[in-house]
Nucleic acid binder design. Structure first.
Length: 1125
DNA sequence: CGTTTCACCATTTTT
DNA sequence: TGGTGAAACG
């Protein structure tokens, strides 16, 4: 972070020097003239293809002291280009020519924090360009002046841009930074010098240039020692360019780089520090030609990899891993397996060999199935890898694996690299997996290192192949290795040190860890450890809230407290209780369910989705205040006219049945959306909407509370996500963005967005994060909730895509329990002063003995017994309940389908059938596949003779498929072959005389008539059979759904006295299973429909959250978070 | 003492 | 949705 805020600080300084002494913003022309005057660097316009421009838009010639810019550029943009070149003048030491792609007004404020999708491995040139962009922006429009201007008057980016002679996009981007991000502390250098090392640290620092392993427990000054080692080497006269310091994460790399720079100053520039992956990329850029890599390497991130697999799906010939509803979900699992395989340096051939071996060894059907699944993954891996190589792309795993290949196949390259980089240092050595371990051995000249530091007990990344035994194998891997133990903890009070040490010595990996017990530098009596029980999870969260409040009342700050959860689910639950109790916290919860985010997504839905159901939510915004009753006629009109919702909004004057207030609100909305067009991106739309009119933004800005600040940060985060999203070229990019949001949610990638952006560090609020994210950090007060049996440790869920047996050498420390122990150990050791442990007894209040078994190991350090009465019994104020909406009149005939929708989610029924927001669901390829399949099955029923069926089937299916199937979709062929297989199953199942499937039945209690469509009914010699035709495999025990009872009641009603049986059929694999539905049960099940009717009549339409919510058409308008709508 | 039903919980994440 | 473990049922 520091480098970027430093750039901004310099830009502010230059602005202050050059601008007239005023608080007002200054026109670009004035600033640039002053810059020319001051620096003597002339601005020279040239024709676009002039040789001096070198093919670029603008260029800086340091020797001639000239800035050249194209005279064909629009003047305000040219001003930005010139300011950018002055940025190069002040920031760098070289000549530059900057082309179109490099000159961007929208470079994010903290490029490192663009979290999703961006692989921000900057090359030095890219970094210099990004910094010049930031410089230009801050130089032309300093945040503080801009903020003052906006707080005084209207927020109108366009007017401001015209006044100042700068591009409107630049004004908007700068407004986003100035108005949405909190104040940046203007501190020149806040880095303190490193403390002098203690004896054991000194020993490690001054060790000879041989293999050395430093075992460093929590808080023992691990990084300080590593930095000290670097400083020592440099002081001893080693060339900084011969030193490489490797880490695993970007965060650790940034921290390390900053501290090395603080320790050795400018000389740090020559030293290489960064992640293993970045170093791999560096080597492949330089020497990759030797293994056939192209000059320009293209490195792809996880999203790109998934998109590649999606593109390849028709070639993968999936069977076991074909997820018909959401193919991406299965592809994500396969991708996990592929990257795990690459962590083990296993090629597709290795994968296939292991899978074949598995098949040979398989003794029973389940293991044969597992082997066949592994073979399928092996095939997918082979196709994926082949394509990567064809295109010359590298994924994350390749950065390591192909580096290993380079070094092993080309000893001359290896020798050159070893000669140049003589000192290899590695941080967090316990996180080393097989691939990085092999790479390290190739990098190190035998006898000359490496120097590594780590702590086995903190190995929390075993699930991705990091084996703690690596540390114990260090002496074998690097003969002659010496070991140093750091034994003084500087972080925590003694009571806390003794608590985590007590746990540490009983961990499975303890024998591999250092034998010495940590000494608490801060004294044995320092620190507090608390343990509290609560009646329920809500009471636990509320107890934490009140504890924090009383500590703050006694003079602490919210920012001192951190809540470390094992899962995001835990954190989200606690965050919502804290927020409603008035405790500020730094955690977004489910990002796309936040009200301020939903408001903006709903707007996007209005402008980009044809059905535009987002209008219902947009209508509630105070600036429009459109009565909800007006939305139904709007939807009906756009359906009748067959136009998208945006057109309906623009033509609202023509629509009957809209109230006067509604008309006015719609006119205001249409005015705000006036310049929206098809090719506009989501990012551009959001920027224009927020900073072009200001009405929406004003409300966001008027809230000075921490919650208000958090809402602004969430909006900023959304802008970042939209900015980094690249839409495919042939669709509306705004609509593609909404699909992308749904996809992030379905694939669970949304969780990355829950952490607040780096700009939030200075806010005084409780920090909530996962234990994994807390590694390497420390906090004065740490809360660890949810310490119950089932949660901590929790049972491993079976991998959807396990690696084949024999690919990993499993050892006793790669178990789940051992890993969970490390997670707990990391959590305990984050606290400086106070550690709060807590758990909830089961729901309801009768106490159950459910303490985490990890607690037993620290029991003697806790202030109370593990079990006992709950001290926390209070819960906060109840969640607001949903308002009662009006009860609609019920039509005479009800369909089973709509009542089932009510049963799964009453809110969805309300949108669909009460407000009638849309006609039908979006046709996904899966749904199209379904309708084509069922159309052909219906035809089969209508044809009596088996021979006729046999003869006509192919032609009939061909017709149905081209008419209603997903034949134009890229996955069409995949679905088609499945459908053909299913039809064959359907044929084989039909034995008797097909009976009508459209039925109806009168419910016994209310007397309502309900229509239903049975999947299939047949009259056979043994009686009537009802069949449920599933497109998936049968579950172990198929649940009795209410509609099955309805089918049975309807059929029995039509054929009184007949024997009626029920059979589940899987069209996928042909499995058939008969189920008995007792008549008494039928009545009971029908009760569900009666209750649904009651609910509809009395206007109960509460949402019922499900995992599949993101696929619902009303996802963006649904209030799942206590906002009334 | 089997079987059925009910309540509870659904990972962690980096490059 | 769907698997698991504990309570309830017969």
């Amino acid at each position: 972070m520091s480098a970027w805020s430093e750039v901004r600080r310099l830009a502010r300084l230059r602005h202050a020097e050059l601008a007239p002494a005023t608080d007002e913003l200054v026109p670009a022309a004035v600033l640039l003239a002053a810059a020319e005057e001051k620096t003597g660097v002339k601005r020279i316009p040239r024709p676009p293809n002039d040789v001096l421009l070198d093919g670029a838009e603008a260029a800086y010639d340091r020797d001639c002291r000239h800035i050249y810019y194209s005279n064909a550029t629009e003047p305000s943009l040219a001003n930005f280009h010139i300011a950018h070149e002055y940025g190069h003048h002040w920031l760098d030491a070289t000549d530059t020519a900057c082309d179109h792609a490099e000159l961007s007004v929208s470079t994010p404020a903290e490029p490192g924090m663009s979290s999703v999708g961006e692989a921000d491995a900057y090359s030095p040139k890219e970094r210099a360009e990004a910094q010049a962009n930031l410089f230009a922006r801050e130089f032309l429009l300093p945040r503080e002046k801009l903020r003052r201007r906006c707080s005084r008057g209207d927020i109108d980016a366009r007017a401001l841009a015209t006044d100042l002679g700068v591009p409107v996009d630049l004004v908007m981007q700068q407004m986003a930074d100035a108005l949405l991000l909190p104040d940046e502390r203007d501190i020149e250098e806040e880095r303190r010098p490193e403390e002098p090392p203690d004896d054991s640290q000194g020993e490690a620092i001054r060790a000879p240039a041989e293999a050395r392993m430093v075992r460093a427990g929590p808080g023992t000054g691990k990084t300080r020692t590593l930095v000290g080692r670097v400083a020592h080497l440099v002081a001893e006269g080693e060339d900084p360019s011969s030193i490489v310091a490797l880490t695993y994460s970007n965060a650790a790399a940034q921290d390390l780089a900053a501290r090395i720079r603080a320790a050795i100053g400018e000389r740090a520039t020559a030293l290489w520090s960064g992640t293993f992956h970045a170093y791999g990329l560096e080597m492949l850029r330089k020497y990759g030609g030797a293994i056939g890599l192209p000059v320009e390497l293209k490195h792809i991130d996880r999203t790109d990899s998934l998109m590649l697999l999606e593109e390849l799906l028709p070639k993968l010939k999936l069977d076991h891993y074909l997820d018909l509803h959401e193919p991406l979900r299965a592809l994500a699992s396969i991708l996990n397996a592929i990257s795990r395989a690459k962590d083990e340096l296993a090629t597709p051939e290795d994968y296939e060999r292991c899978a074949r071996q598995m098949l040979d060894d398989a003794a029973d059907e389940p293991s044969r199935l597992a082997a066949r699944r592994a073979l399928e993954v092996a095939r997918a891996y082979a196709v994926y890898e082949e394509t990567l190589r064809e295109r010359g792309w590298l994924d994350f795993g390749d950065l390591i694996a192909r580096s290993v290949e380079l070094l092993q196949k080309h000893p001359e390259v290896r020798a050159a690299i070893r000669e140049e980089k003589r000192h290899i240092l590695v941080d967090e050595y316990q996180d080393m997996n097989r691939a990085s371990g092999v790479l390290l051995r190739e990098l190190v000249e035998p006898g000359r290192g490496p120097w590594v530091v780590g702590d086995v007990r903190q190995a929390i990344y075993r699930f991705r192949g990091a084996s703690p035994t690596n540390m114990s194998r260090f002496p074998q891997d690097f003969p002659g290795a010496q070991t140093t133990d750091l034994s003084v903890n500087y972080r925590s009070g003694g009571k806390i040190v003794r608590t985590f040490e007590a746990f540490g010595i009983r961990m499975g990996c303890a024998p591999l860890s250092s034998a010495c017990v940590l000494t608490a530098h801060r004294g044995d009596d320092n620190g507090e450890v608390h343990y509290e029980l609560a009646t329920t999870r809500e009471a636990e969260a509320y107890g934490i809230a009140t504890t924090i409040q009383s500590r703050v009342a006694a003079g602490g700050t919210f920012g001192n407290h951190a809540i470390l959860g094992k899962t995001h689910t835990v954190l989200a639950r606690i965050a919502s209780v804290l927020e409603s109790a008035g405790v500020p916290c730094l955690y977004f919860g489910d990002f796309f369910e936040r009200p301020e985010i939903r408001d903006l997504l709903a707007l996007l839905s209005v402008v980009a989705e044809p059905k535009g159901v987002g209008l219902l939510r947009v209508a509630q915004l105070p600036q429009y205040a459109i009565p909800p009753g007006d939305i139904t006629p709007m939807c009906a009109w756009r359906r009748a006219q067959r136009v998208p919702m945006l057109a309906a909004v623009r033509r609202s004057a023509e629509i009957d049945g809209v109230s006067e207030a509604g008309r006015q609100g719609l006119a205001r909305l249409a005015a705000d959306l006036v310049d929206v067009d098809w090719p506009m991106t989501a990012h551009s739309f959001l920027m224009r909407y927020l900073f072009g009119t200001g009405t929406h933004l004003r409300r966001l800005l008027d809230d000075e509370s921490v919650a208000g600040q958090q809402r602004r940060l969430a909006v900023y985060q959304l802008l970042l996500v939209a900015f980094s999203f690249k839409a495919p070229s042939d669709v509306d990019p705004k609509r593609a963005f909404l699909d992308h949001v749904r996809r992030l949610e379905v694939l669970d990638e949304e969780k990355q967005l829950r952490q607040l952006p780096a700009a939030a560090v200075d806010i005084d609020a409780v920090r909530l994060m996962t234990i994994h994210a807390s590694k390497g950090l420390e906090f004065p007060c740490v809360h660890i909730p949810s310490l119950t049996t089932r949660h901590f440790p929790s049972a491993a869920r079976p991998e959807p895509c396990p690696l084949p047996a024999g690919m990993l050498d499993t050892d006793s420390l790669m178990t789940r329990d051992a890993e969970e122990e490390s997670v707990f150990f990391v959590a305990l050791s984050r606290a400086r002063d106070i550690l709060f442990l807590s758990r909830a007894l089961t729901n309801g209040g009768q106490s159950t003995k459910n303490p985490s078994r990890f607690l037993a190991h620290v029991a003697s350090h806790l202030p109370r017994p593990l079990d006992g009465a709950a001290g926390w019994t209070a819960v906060g104020p109840p969640e607001p309940s949903w308002p009662l909406l009006w009860a609609p009149p019920l039509g005479g005939e009800l369909s089973s389908r709509s009542l089932e929708m009510y049963l799964t989610c009453p809110r969805r029924y309300y949108y669909e059938h009460v407000l009638e927001l849309s006609g039908s669901d979006e046709a996904t390829p899966y749904l199209k596949f379904q309708s084509a399949l069922h159309a052909t099955i219906a035809w089969m029923r209508s044809v009596a003779s088996p021979q006729e069926r046999e003869d006509g089937l192919a032609a009939r299916f061909e017709d149905d498929w081209t008419r209603i199937g997903p034949s134009d979709h890229p996955f069409g062929p995949v679905y088609r072959s499945v459908a053909e297989k299913m039809l064959r199953t359907a044929v084989s199942v039909m034995g008797g005389e097909c009976l009508p499937t459209e039925r109806q039945v009168r419910l016994p209690a209310t007397g309502h008539v309900v229509r239903c469509r049975v999947d299939h009914v047949e009259a056979t010699t043994g009686g009537i059979v009802i069949r449920r035709l599933k497109t998936s495999t049968l579950a172990k025990n198929e649940k009795a759904e209410p509609r099955y009872a309805l089918w049975q009641a309807a059929v029995l009603n039509d054929h009184p006295g007949q024997y009626c049986s029920f059979e589940h059929v899987s069209l996928l694999d042909g499995e058939r299973r008969a189920t008995r539905v007792e008549p008494s049960k039928v009545e009971e099940q029908l009760q569900a429909f009666e209750e649904a009717i009651d609910g509809i009549r009395s206007g109960c339409f509460d949402p019922k959250p499900h995992t599949w919510c993101p696929t619902c058409a009303y996802y963006f308008i649904c209030p799942s978070h206590g906002v009334t709508l």
